[in-house]
């Protein structure tokens, strides 16, 4: 069995355990999550299950996107959050909500994530070293943040403001099976696109010129990853808001066990992202805080230091990838 298959199976197992734990653990202690009384059934199957599945799907989408973007841009610091895809996806959804066409929020998320993906891959394609690419992402993220604030200011429906602000912090609270279906559909579409680019990502290990010289069609690879990243990030952001760092952390964790082949870490990164976010959401729910900590905030609290560590290690190696 290859290391990547072993990692995938392990992470699939962990995902299942985490999802089961998410049904059982929560602010309301349950002795038996499979009890047949109405209250238990409502808590477990109507509240906790959609919430846990939404967290898993969003985490998987972000983990997969992180692995794909890192491979495409040959940059270990790349992910939807850092490169501004999540910020743009949130902007798209905020515009849809604030101006009263909420049904189009997911489509707007995907479309805006696509714009960010195109911008960052075009501007960052030839960037020297990981830092300059990250700076492009920081620029896009701040720009998206500014436009979100502007959209909220101009919104004709200020009643929704508080909800929207909360939502830009990232949360899977109160999600329904409709959210699950939406995130799952976009994850399947995005994953199909990204897995079609897997061999191109493998070739890019040699750098752009040599990848082209061994026969990789790089414009194809790039288009597939950009579209796939937009679908995955748009879907994840539409159902869970902005959740940072899962996309960075998942591939890095996976490489420890599954090696560095950019094609072989795609599936385990998705599974790891899902498991990570379900676990983070369990922590958020069982923490005895007065108001529930937002999942996106928790992810940042854990992921931020991880990002800083990776960046510091890169810097100590001379900053080049």
């Amino acid at each position: 069995m290859s290391a990547s298959l072993r990692a995938s199976l392990t992470l699939l197992g962990l995902s299942i355990v985490a999802l089961a734990a998410a049904l059982w653990l929560g602010p309301t202690p349950l002795a038996d999550p499979f009890a047949r009384d109405d209250i238990t059934r409502t808590i477990v199957w109507d509240i906790r299950l959609p919430r846990a599945l939404t967290a898993w799907l969003a985490g998987a989408a972000l983990g997969l996107t992180g692995a794909a973007l890192q491979g495409l841009l040959r940059n270990p610091l790349a992910d939807s959050g850092v490169l501004g895809l999540s910020g743009f996806a949130a902007l798209g959804a905020v515009i849809a909500f604030a101006f009263g066409f909420a049904t189009f929020a997911p489509a707007m998320s995907v479309a805006f994530a696509l714009v960010a993906a195109l911008l960052v891959t075009t501007l960052g394609w030839t960037s020297r070293g990981p830092a300059s690419l990250v700076l492009i992402g920081v620029g896009l993220s701040s720009f998206a943040g500014g436009l979100i604030a502007l959209a909220l200011n101009l919104a004709p429906n200020p009643g929704a403001l508080a909800d929207l602000v909360n939502w830009t912090l990232g949360s899977v609270e109160g999600r329904s099976l409709e959210h699950v279906a939406l995130a799952a559909t976009l994850l399947v579409v995005g994953a199909a696109l990204i897995f079609a680019a897997a061999r191109g990502l493998q070739a890019l290990t040699l750098g752009e010129e040599a990848a082209a010289a061994i026969g990789a069609n790089l414009s194809n690879t790039r288009a597939l990853v950009v579209l796939g990243a937009a679908a995955c990030t748009g879907g994840a952001t539409a159902v869970a808001g902005v959740i940072g760092f899962v996309g960075i952390a998942a591939p890095h964790l996976v490489r420890i066990f599954a090696g560095h082949d950019p094609a072989r870490i795609l599936l385990p990164s998705a599974l790891a992202g899902g498991a990570l976010l379900v676990c983070a959401d369990i922590v958020v729910r069982v923490l005895p805080t007065d108001t529930e900590l937002k999942l996106g905030v928790a992810a940042t609290l854990i992921g931020g230091p991880v990002f800083a560590l990776i960046a510091a290690r890169l810097a100590s190696r001379g900053g080049d990838t």
Partner: peptide, 18 residues
């Protein structure tokens, strides 16, 4: 093209430590 000519760049890279 790759089936007709193989190319070794001046500074070949292995971006990921495979």
């Amino acid at each position: 093209r790759a089936l007709r000519a193989a190319y070794l760049p001046q500074r070949p890279q292995a971006i990921w430590p495979i």
